[in-house]
Structures are given as structure tokens and as C-alpha cells.
Design a protein around this nucleic acid. Structure first.
Lengths: 368, 368
DNA sequence: TTGTATGCGTTATCAC
DNA sequence: GTGATAACGCATACAA
């Protein structure tokens, strides 16, 4: 039982053909005659042969693996994305290597090494911060063309970027609150240098301006997408005077903990204050009341990014340089937003905002 | 800039030594004289050499990668575990390949292939269901010794298992409710054939028996750890008559959605019904009220499993066959459990239950 | 359509 | 302590 595993030579012997033929049967079955192909497959069956990846990789100078770089693997927001990436990639014969970009020491050099030592054919990075060290390594390994951004991105490098329309999402959020009569709207942001945080914040501010809303500086409070940040933000915002009647949180995690803290301090949501999140994590639909939020198509983001990378790995590099592929966002109205208590409705019907969300698959949001 | 990458031969040439020496400098620096070692490292520096993994793997018959098999990557419960595994493994020079065991078609064969084609040195499986197909492949590749279970497990195979003490967790939960005066306690289980679900359920029933509590069959409702299951379970349990005053949910996800549904139907938690979960996911501490739950040390589980696998990969296979390593569990008391409304306290102080939790690091549970 | 022969870049086995 | 050289298992250029 512990014989050395069968090699291509053994298969060739059993099938009565040359090793080259066996190899071809594996990689280009079409180029063989029906008869020999069958012979080879039979021999593979009887010998229990499996190709040795290391040998194949060495010979073909491919790795059959792609790297997915995740900022903080512990963040559940990424798990759905990772899952759909994994589906697409493994269905196409690629292994998925995951890497945490926030790891203590390693990450930076580790990623570079992956490319330089050829253990990876490409990369999807969910981390928008790409250092010039990494970029240099990519260039060096001639791998710059095999990298795509997903969710986050950096304009500094000429790479495709699969992302949600964060600006639209923020506008939908503001419009929704305005439509319900809110005029005093606060915002809890993502982490300081985060591109998503910036996009959402600037779109928030612009849209507020469009609606002629005044947004004092201290109505925009710094967060970091985390549960803890939401609770802290609540403490700060509830202490404001006058107090905002609506709050747009840049993540659902912050929105949920924001709401929890409001309750803890005796405020009711949405009666006393309306809260809208961003992401539509699964919990949003199962909270009480259900969290009004901007849905991101996490599965779609992962799938699109994986498909884009696959196309590039196949050499179907349609476009040069940077370009953007948007995954849909949509307003999901649940129970944490309502008209402010002492407000007059703006529009005839409580609907004063621009474009509603469209193009989003299966807008199911009610638990069974 | 697009010269072929430097090979070991180039380094040898620059350093004025043989390729064998360069190779040794990389793998066993001690066996070289100080002088030549330095020469080699300098040459590596100037050439920008990186070892070609495929070639090394082919020669050494190692892969430098381990597989982590996750049942449903989309489940955020696993992200913390995956994260700590990744930390340990990558710090020790191993790449982490993730695989979703619930993927449509692939998984089964894909996992087997990983071992048979040598692209992986070992595996940590978070999925307790190991088919005999997979086991056969492992045996065939002589890889049975390089597999460890984490969280879930199967007694069918002689493998180490890193897990929480699920029985203790369930007992702590029951004892806690009993200590508060509950006598009518229901349970929402995990998925049907899941080993964790079974352990928690049987320990629940046994402990109830110990406390001489009657548990009618319909007080144990089938769940599956998911948010949706918790909401559905609430519908069923709230319809019971007499209605249980306390509920032990086998996961925090179910507990949280259970509570949400209770509220939606006008019941207050913990006033009208007490709920205790299992896991202590991050959200538990930020819910309002905070979720009383049994904490699992997710980071510890991942770390221990990774360390155990590493030891095996190093050949330090201490024990033969199956053995268990427990990660600590602990009762985390927050706000979703309280004395039932019409109950008499059992003990002098509302404390009638056995052993409190111990040995758990940093029992912080309050948001800042 | 199939076979022959070479090389992918390392490490390991021997010598020295 | 160091150097020559033979595998490792496969894919492909070329020949047939």
C-alpha cells in the first residue's frame, strides 16, 4: 500500500503508449485518437494516477493558485465575498490562497515572495493599500497584469477594480432620510485612510449640500466599521445639541451597535432617531427592528472579481490600465428609519428623493 | 527588466561557489563557513534571487501549504478561527489553502486530489463529516497522520480533535438558567446530523434531568445554527403552552434572531423570557441587551489546531490515533437572562448551579 | 496522430 | 566545508 505513487511513466507503460501521449491525454485530449485516449484514461484509472502538481508547475511555470489578500480575515464582512470567489476560482481549477494583510510582521514581504517564487498566478486584493514594495515585486515578476482590486482599491496603480457604487449608496441613504423629513443628519465614517470611508463620506457631504442641509463638523464622527466604533459614535452623537434626527453609518456593524447603544441610553429607534447602515449583512434582516441599509452585493463582488482575474489569467486582457466594474447597491428599507418626530413631510408622499434603487437581484429581506 | 528571473545557478556564479553551496546556504546555513555563507547571501541580495517553489517542492516532495476545509465559508463564525490559523501557519512558512466543503459539486474529489497530487502537506478540517472517499485518498497518500479536526469532528477516524467542551458549555447554560429560577427550559438545536448539535443537545437533556426538570419533546426544536432558524424556532416556542421561561440556543446567531422575533411579537427579553446563546460572537456583546452566552475561544481553537498540525508536519507525532484537545468555554453573563417572572428563587442568592467558569483569558464583555 | 529527447530549478548523494 | 551530478515528474519541440 505504500508503493511510490504512480507516475506518468507507469501509466504510459500500462496503456502501451509513450509518456508524451499520456501527458497530451491530460492537457489536450482532442489531439488524440479516440482509441488511444480511451486506453490512456483506462490506464489512469487502473493505476490510480494523479498528476504531480509540483512537477507540472515547474514545467509550465504556472502555479494554479491565486492569492486573496484580505484586510483582517476575522471580519465577517469578507467571508461571503471570499466564499463566492472560492466558488468561481476552484470551479476553474485554481486553488485559493488566503492571506491576512494586517498580520503583524509578514504580509508585505510574504505577498511579494508569493509572486517572486512563483507560487501564485495572480491576486485579488480586498485591501486598497498596496505598497510600492508590493508593486515593485509585481512588476518584477511581470505580474502587474494579474491583479485586481475588489471592494477597496487604490488609484495609484493601473489595475481593474471591482467595487460597489459607494457614492450612489451614500446618496441613496441621504435621500432616503431626507425623503422622510430629516434635515439634521449625522454620519459615522469608516477608518481614517480608507478609500471606502472617504467615498461614502464625501458623497454624504455632497448630497447633504445638494439638499441644502447644514452638516456641522462634529456631526461627522470618525469610526472604523467596527461594532465598537458604532457604540462610541452613539455616545458622541447623542451628546450633540441640537441632536441629529438621522444617522448614516458607513457599515452595518456600526449601525447595529449604534442602535443598541441608543436603546441602552433610553432612546427608541426609529422613533427618537433614525439609523441607516451600509452593507446589508445578514444580521441586518434579523435585527429588531430590521436595519434599513444600503445593500452591497457581496457574492457578486467576489464573483465578478474572480471572473475578471480569470479572464486576465487566460490572457483575455480586454482593457489596459485601470477600469472599474460596479456591483449593484440598493436601498433596503426596513424598520430603523422613519419620519422625525417634529418634522413636516417634504414631498406629497414622504418621497422626495431622486432615483430609487434598481437592477438588484432578489430583494428579499424578510425572515421567514 | 524582463530578463528571466535569476536561478540558483546565477547566484552561484556571482558568489563564486557551486549551486550546492547556495542551496545549503538557504536550507542549512549552519553547515557553511561564515565566509562563504556571507558571500552567498550577498550574491542573493545583488541578484534578487528567490527560490522557485515549484522546483523545490518537486525535489523535496513537500508543498509548503496546508488545506483548511470550511463548511460554508460564508458563515462568520469561522472567520475568527480561520484568521488565527492563518497567523500561526503563515508564521511557520505554510501557505493556507481554503476550501468550502459545501460547494456544489467539487469539494469531495477536490480535497482528495489536493493530497494525491501533492499540492498540500496536511489539512485542518472544520467539517466533521469526512467521507470514506476522502479517508481513502488520505490513506493512499499516506496523509492520514497530517489531518486534524477543529471544532467539529468525527469519531470514525483516528485523528486528533481540537474542540470546545460542548458538554460543559451546555451544562453551564442549563445551570445558569436553573440558578435564576427557571424550571421550564427549551432548547434550539443545531443541524440534524451535526456532532456539535448532538453534544450540546444531549448534555442539555442530561443536565435538565439532573435538575429534575421536565423537558417535553416539543421543547427541543430543530434548528441549524442560522439566523433564520432562530426566528423560526421563536415562532414555535412562543406558541407552546405552557410556555418555557428560558431558552438555550445552540448558537448566538439563533439566539439573537430568536430574541428579535420575540420582541417583534411583543415579548420582552429577559423579562418575559430568558435566552442564552452559544459561541460569544462579537455581536453578542454589542446587542441590547447584551447576549448571555457560552463563550468559545475561537482564536484559541484555530491556534491550537494549527499548532497541532504543525507538530505533526514536523514529525513530532506525540500520540497515535484519536485524542482530544479542549479549548476553554465560559459562561458570559449579560442581559438576556434573568429570573422568571413568577418564580421562587431556588438558592439563597439565586445561585443554585454548580461550578462557575474558569480558566478563560480576558473575560471582557463590555463595549467601551 | 504518436514517440523521442530535453529541460524546468532544486535538493540530495556522493565524492573530494 | 565544498563541488560535481543525478534525480524529482512532467510538458513540449521536434521528428517520424
Amino acid at each position: 500500500m505504500q508503493n511510490p505513487p504512480p507516475k506518468i511513466k507507469d501509466v504510459a507503460h500500462v496503456a502501451g503508449v509513450s509518456t508524451a501521449t499520456v501527458s497530451r491525454a491530460l492537457t489536450q485530449p482532442d489531439r488524440l485518437s479516440e482509441a488511444t485516449r480511451q486506453k490512456v484514461f483506462d490506464a489512469i484509472e487502473t493505476t490510480g494516477y494523479r498528476v504531480n502538481q509540483a512537477a507540472r508547475n515547474l514545467r509550465t511555470r504556472r502555479a494554479g493558485a491565486v492569492l486573496v489578500l484580505v484586510p483582517n480575515l476575522g471580519n465577517p464582512f469578507f467571508s461571503a465575498i471570499l466564499s463566492s470567489m472560492n466558488d468561481v476560482l476552484s470551479a476553474n481549477g485554481y486553488s485559493v490562497l488566503v492571506f491576512d494583510s494586517q498580520q503583524p510582521g509578514a504580509s508585505e514581504q510574504a505577498v511579494a515572495d508569493c509572486f517572486l517564487n512563483g507560487s501564485v498566478d495572480g491576486m485579488i486584493t480586498l485591501d486598497g493599500h498596496m505598497t510600492s514594495t508590493t508593486a515593485k515585486a509585481l512588476r518584477n515578476a511581470n505580474m502587474m497584469r494579474n491583479v485586481v482590486f475588489c471592494c477597496e482599491w487604490s488609484d495609484q496603480w493601473p489595475l481593474p477594480s471591482i467595487r460597489s457604487n459607494n457614492g450612489l449608496g451614500a446618496r441613496l441613504a441621504v435621500d432616503h432620510l431626507v425623503a422622510q423629513g430629516h434635515r439634521k443628519i449625522a454620519h459615522v465614517t469608516g477608518p481614517a485612510s480608507n478609500i471606502l470611508a472617504e467615498m461614502r463620506k464625501s458623497a454624504f457631504l455632497q448630497r447633504c449640500a445638494t439638499h441644502k442641509l447644514d452638516v456641522p463638523a462634529d456631526w461627522v464622527v470618525q469610526g472604523d466599521f467596527s461594532l465598537m466604533a458604532g457604540a462610541q459614535a452613539a455616545d458622541r452623537i447623542l451628546a450633540l445639541s441640537p441632536r441629529p434626527t438621522g444617522v448614516f453609518c458607513a457599515s452595518d456593524a456600526m449601525a447595529l451597535s449604534f442602535i443598541a447603544r441608543c436603546r441602552q441610553r433610553g432612546l427608541r429607534v426609529p422613533d427618537d432617531i433614525s439609523v441607516i447602515g451600509f452593507d446589508d449583512i445578514e444580521m441586518a434582516a434579523y435585527a429588531e427592528p430590521g436595519l434599513t441599509t444600503i445593500r452591497q452585493d457581496r457574492a457578486g463582488l467576489g464573483r465578478l472579481a474572480a471572473q475578471e482575474l480569470l479572464a486576465r489569467l487566460r490572457g483575455e486582457q480586454k482593457t489596459e490600465g485601470a477600469y472599474v466594474i460596479y456591483a449593484p447597491v440598493a436601498l433596503i428599507e426596513r424598520g430603523t428609519t422613519a419620519a422625525p418626530q417634529n418634522a413636516t413631510q417634504p414631498g406629497a408622499n414622504g418621497r422626495g428623493g431622486p432615483e430609487p434603487a434598481t437592477g438588484f437581484p432578489e430583494p428579499v429581506d424578510k425572515p421567514a
